Computed example of a mutant assay.
Amino acid sequence: MTTLINKFISLEQGSSLLLELKRLLMTRLQAIVLPTVGVACFLIIWSLAANAIDTSLGKFPGPKAVGTQIVNLYQEHVAEREKEAAFYQRQEVRNAKRLAKDPSYQPKIRAYTGKETFIDQIGTSLVTVLSGFIVAAIIAIPLGIAVGLSKALNTAINPIIQIFKPVSPLAWLPLVTMVVSAVYVSPEPLLAKSFVNSMITVTLCCIWPMVINTSVGVAAINQDWVNVSRVLRLPSLVHVQKIVLPASIPAIFTGMRLSLGIAWMVLIAAEMLAQNPGLGKFVWDEFQNGSSQSLSRIMTAVFVIGFIGFLLDRGMLQLQRILSWDKDSAKR
């Protein structure tokens, strides 16, 4: 009898294991197949729609045209780097000859002034958006903590937040440009004014979601934890470090993810107007160029902008998974 019971239990366990394996396999297949089907449908619809749309510059670019431009833009980048390397090599050869004739000669190396490639402009945009985002975080997170801890401060600042939160970057940029032009005066500036204009505009537009989410997260801290802090008579800074920050990390990261997405969207518009040499300027220059390849190059930039925005969000989510105690808040 015991043997029969043990066999039955073994069969049940084996059946449960098979069901679990089947469930995991189906989940993995869905995670692969469904996105693939979605992307394939999108590409088909896009290709059909592109063939049906005629513009003043020709057919609207489809997937094939974008793929061609990705290769072309990379080849242009490689060619430009080869020109840069050859430029510095010529200077080194010239300086070596001068030194051979005149040992007292002081070699001079001029900086390469060739045009920025598409990949260079991607790097410029990333540096600009991350700089503006970091400045916003330095301001917004402490302010959000203070607002969340003090009802009086919340009441005082909330109207200001609600007024400036919906302001478009297109409204901020002229004001920022005028202020930077008046204040940032230097014959040899460390940073280009176009970069400073774009960075400050990004900061102004992405600071508010971080303030709001941080303050909400701080205000919603479990009251039992606050009571423990009071019983232990923790100093204010220790209370913030040991209780407030760990408890509000999920809300803080939610605000940071929202702000980073807004920052990336704002940056493209800011670069178009400020002429900061990033992706926004690339799109604007191609639009002004009006060549037969302009549309496909702009469409390529659109996909690159979207893909980088996706990677930035995934990177912030991964950072949240590492730092947050609430792993459920960092699933998506």
Rank of each mutant, 00 (worst) to 15 (best):
G38N: 13
K7D: 13
V304P: 02
Y112H: 04
A274Y: 05
I145Y: 04
G148R: 01
F8I: 15
P166A: 09
R81W: 06
L34T: 14
Q30F: 12
P35L: 15
G58Y: 08
C206L: 08
V78K: 15
K151S: 14
S16A: 13
D326Y: 00
V135N: 02
L237A: 07
M26F: 12
Q275K: 09
L48V: 12
F133S: 06
Q288T: 10
A156T: 10
V135G: 03
P235M: 12
W325R: 15
I268R: 08
I252A: 05
L175D: 07
F253P: 01
Y105L: 09
L4V: 05
A156S: 15
P166Y: 06
I161K: 03
C41A: 13
F282V: 03
I207Y: 05
K7V: 11
P159D: 14
G278C: 04
M26D: 14
K151C: 09
L143E: 05
V135D: 04
S47Y: 12
L175Q: 07
K101Y: 06
I122D: 00
E188Y: 15
S16V: 08
E82N: 14
I322R: 14
S47A: 12
Q89G: 09
L311W: 09
G217R: 00
T113K: 15
Q293A: 14
K83G: 11
M1C: 15
T300E: 03
A79Q: 14
T201F: 02
R98D: 08
A50E: 03
F307W: 08
T124E: 04
I145Q: 01
Q30E: 13
L312Q: 01
S294G: 00
Y184L: 06
S150F: 04
D102K: 08
Y74S: 12
D102H: 05
D328E: 15
L25H: 13
S150M: 07
V218K: 01
S186R: 13
I308S: 06
I134M: 04
D285L: 11
S236V: 10
I122G: 00
G217N: 01
A152K: 10
S47W: 13
A52K: 11
Q241P: 00
Q91G: 03
P159A: 15
L175M: 10
W325C: 08
S291G: 10
E20Y: 06
E20P: 01
L258E: 03
Q162K: 14
F60G: 07
H77R: 15
S291M: 10
L170Y: 09
L204A: 01
M210F: 11
P209V: 04
R94F: 11
Q223N: 08
M178D: 10
A247D: 00
L130G: 02
M299R: 01
N227Y: 00
G114P: 01
P61V: 04
L29P: 00
E80S: 06
G62R: 02
I207D: 09
A269D: 13
K97E: 13
Q293G: 08
D285Q: 11
K22D: 12
E84N: 07
N197K: 07
T300P: 00
I70S: 07
V135C: 04
F310Q: 10
E116I: 13
L170C: 11
S259Q: 08
S47H: 09
I249N: 02
V66F: 00
F60I: 12
R233S: 11
V78E: 15
V179I: 10
Q162I: 13
Q318R: 11
P166C: 11
K331P: 06
D285Y: 06
A111Y: 14
Y105F: 08
R321M: 03
L18V: 12
V304H: 01
